[in-house]
Design a protein around this nucleic acid. Structure first.
Length: 681
DNA sequence: GCAAGGTC
């Protein structure tokens, strides 16, 4: 008997082979694709790792021309399945193996998408060898017990589960393709930089757009504070009026008049509190990306680096929702090996503790462990951000094993000429985990030794007018977290979605701000196609998918309902096509302005050549033929400022999460797209 | 050339 075992990825294939064969598996390479083979109980096993999905949905070729087919036609067309470009090599090996094997075991991840990936490979396999019997191995972790158990108790495929995933594909493609084409055609943005719409990307963009609106609509409210400096034993500390914020100027002035010029105060009470500060829980993708973003590394870049570190064996799999280390994790061994790294002293300290009890988060899943340093320590020198990300993962790991920290806060109440004031002190008395995870530790605020009825010196009691501040812009990390909370996207796709919004020209700068076109598209959708801008579309879809997985709903019913809803929305959009297109076009025109042409003074704008290349051209064309090359990749934002050296327009370019400012004239010392940019942040 | 989801 020859058994073909199909896994979701090469890593899993290797691991599973080693577990079942007790490390006796042999690797054979078919081109670049490794296949693991071994004997067991008289059977011959061939284990193949895929690279995720091998089939993709698409419309039949007749529907590929954007102008010849109305977008509305896409709503009702049945998509076809195509082999993904990146999977052709693997699919070939899969077909070869299907011919020599007597049965198939699907061993992809035990979740919705995993079941669909397994089903896809069966479509390929059965096209070659229709009678191949199929079994399913279900394991929730790549451990000896789980994997051995799964292969001893093989079960059947759960086609309802893969149908649930397939219905998602159908819904996403119909909505995405139809609305993407509509909005692109309506606004004349067809070609290389079309505009896009989708179940996940549009609500994500709306989060940023809506926050920006709140910020713009915010009306600051004035308030007044009374603060001063007090001192004892030559140690100054800040005091502020117990009222904190005065909303009435008259009241503030009245109180200030009493204490203005005061030079003494009396301590009325001193309260010391000790607060226990628990160590953080293990990293999942969301919390990891959030911290990386705080270090100034964009989420897309942080994910790329994490994948790099993972492929080289230094950290664990970076795509996980889990925040609880599995029992099988050899924490001690990891610590011992970390002792060989730059953070060795810290690792040794943690290792020297009596007990090693890791913290645990609320989310416990069984697919992958939380992100942690692997047993192989990183002792090489890598590029700066790689080192920063590795250090972040190591320090987080150490912190999850370290003791509590303790902060002591002291609240002092004072009386100054009958008015009440407060002073606050803060001190980290036990560093605990904060020694290892030292990012963003609160600063100590020192206070002198004080006791009730002590007299202190007071000076500089000032009245200050302040204003309330608008809500803060969502940074990339906060955005990822919001998406997670709202159920938008997955651990593997959220960072890509954000990157996509930048690539479409919907977002610019960091923290992300909506561009004019991002705002215009969102407004148009919110007015005429609200469903696609709301996270609820995803949550209802999730519920429907659960029903399909449980066999309580038919895929056809869900898809048809979705198509009908989409058709209704399309009609509303189409009726208002001219208005929607007009507004987006206006936004795009504004967005393409680059500032004054340095030769004739007219406006320079971003254009595209016939070949599709981006360049800056003078709006005075053909009278002025001044042009400059522009970077072909990345998001361009005009700084609307002329270059200090040559007066040509300057731009800000965001590429792979990095933002650089430059002058667009070639050969200019302050940039020029031919050379490297000078300023960077 | 459209989406979102796997994985690299």
């Amino acid at each position: 008997m020859d058994s073909l075992v199909i896994c979701e990825k090469n890593d899993a294939a290797k691991r599973i082979s080693n577990i079942i064969s007790k490390n006796m598996a042999k690797t054979t390479k078919y081109g670049k694709v490794p296949v693991y083979t071994f004997q067991k109980g008289g059977d011959h096993f061939h284990v193949l790792g895929l690279r995720g999905h091998i089939l993709e949905l698409d419309y039949p070729p007749a529907y590929s021309q954007w102008f010849r087919v109305s977008p509305s036609e896409l709503i009702w067309v049945d998509p076809i399945k195509k082999t993904s470009k990146s999977a052709t090599g693997i699919v070939k090996v899969l077909k070869d193996l299907a011919q020599i094997c007597d049965n198939v075991i699907i061993a992809t991840d035990f979740d919705r998408e995993g079941e669909l990936i397994g089903t896809e490979s069966l479509e390929v396999v059965h096209a070659i060898n229709p009678d191949l019997p199929v079994k399913r191995a279900k394991f929730s972790a790549l451990t000896d017990t789980e994997v051995n158990g799964a292969f001893e108790n093989l079960t059947q495929m759960d086609y309802n589960l893969s149908k649930a995933a397939h219905s998602r594909q159908l819904v996403d493609l119909a909505w995405g393709a139809t609305l993407t084409r509509f909005i692109s055609i309506a606004s004349g943005k067809v070609g290389k930089d079309f505009l896009s719409v989708g179940r996940v990307q549009s609500p994500t963009l709306a989060l940023i757009v809506d926050r920006e609106k709140e910020i713009k609509a915010f009306v600051p409210k004035p308030y007044w504070t009374i603060t001063g400096m007090a001192s004892k034993d030559k140690l100054d500390f800040k005091i502020s009026h117990a009222n904190d914020r005065f909303w009435e100027e008259a009241e503030a002035k009245k109180a200030h008049k009493i204490v203005d010029g005061a030079s003494k105060g009396t301590v009325t009470s001193v309260e010391v509190k000790t607060k226990t500060d628990k160590p953080p829980v293990p990293y999942n993708t969301t919390s990891f990306l959030k911290d990386a973003a705080r270090l100034g590394i964009s989420v897309a870049q942080a994910m790329r680096i994490a994948e790099d570190l993972y492929t080289n064996g230094w950290i664990s799999y970076p795509r996980t929702d889990n925040t609880v280390y599995p029992k099988s994790l050899d924490i001690k061994k990891i610590l011992q090996n970390l002792s060989k790294t730059d953070m060795g002293d810290l690792a040794k300290e943690v290792l020297a503790q009596d007990k090693l009890v890791p913290t645990r988060g609320k989310k416990e899943t069984t697919d992958h462990p939380p992100i942690h340093p692997s047993e192989e320590p990183l002792t090489e020198r890598l590029e700066r951000n790689h080192m920063a990300v590795y250090e972040l993962v190591v320090r987080r790991f150490l912190a999850t094993l370290a003791p509590n920290a303790q902060t002591q806060t002291t609240k002092v109440k004072l009386d100054v000429k009958g008015e009440k004031f407060n002073g606050t002190g803060q001190k980290l008395v036990v560093a605990g985990w904060r020694k290892y995870f030292h990012y963003y530790n609160p600063k100590d605020i020192e206070l002198p030794e004080l006791a009730q009825s002590d007299e202190v010196d007071v000076k500089d009691v000032d009245l200050t007018r302040k204003e309330t501040e608008p809500p803060r812009r969502l940074g990339q990390g906060a955005l990822i977290q919001k998406m997670d909370e709202l159920g938008l996207g997955t651990k593997s796709t959220r960072h890509e979605i954000i990157q996509k919004l930048y690539n479409r020209g919907y977002l610019e700068s960091s923290p992300p701000k909506p561009t004019l076109s991002g705002t215009a598209v969102t407004e148009a959708l919110e007015e005429f196609a609200q469903t696609i801008t709301e996270p609820e579309m995803t949550s209802t879809l999730e519920k429907d998918m659960d029903l399909i997985a449980d066999g309580k709903q038919e895929l056809e019913v869900l898809v048809k309902e979705s198509q009908q809803m989409l058709e209704g929305i399309y009609k509303a959009l189409d009726k208002n096509k001219a208005q929607i297109g007009g507004r987006i076009k206006e936004a795009l025109r504004e967005q393409n302005r680059l500032g004054k042409c340095e030769t004739c003074g007219k406006e320079m704008v971003i254009r595209r050549s016939r070949k599709g290349k981006r360049f800056a051209g003078c709006g005075g064309f053909p009278r002025c033929r001044n042009t400059h090359p522009l970077p072909q990749r990345g998001v361009i934002k005009s700084l609307m400022e002329e270059c200090a050296e040559c007066k040509a327009p300057t731009i800000e370019i965001t590429m792979r999460g990095k933002t650089t400012q430059m002058c667009i004239r070639m050969g200019c010392p302050l940039g020029g797209t031919g050379g490297k940019a000078k300023k960077e942040d």
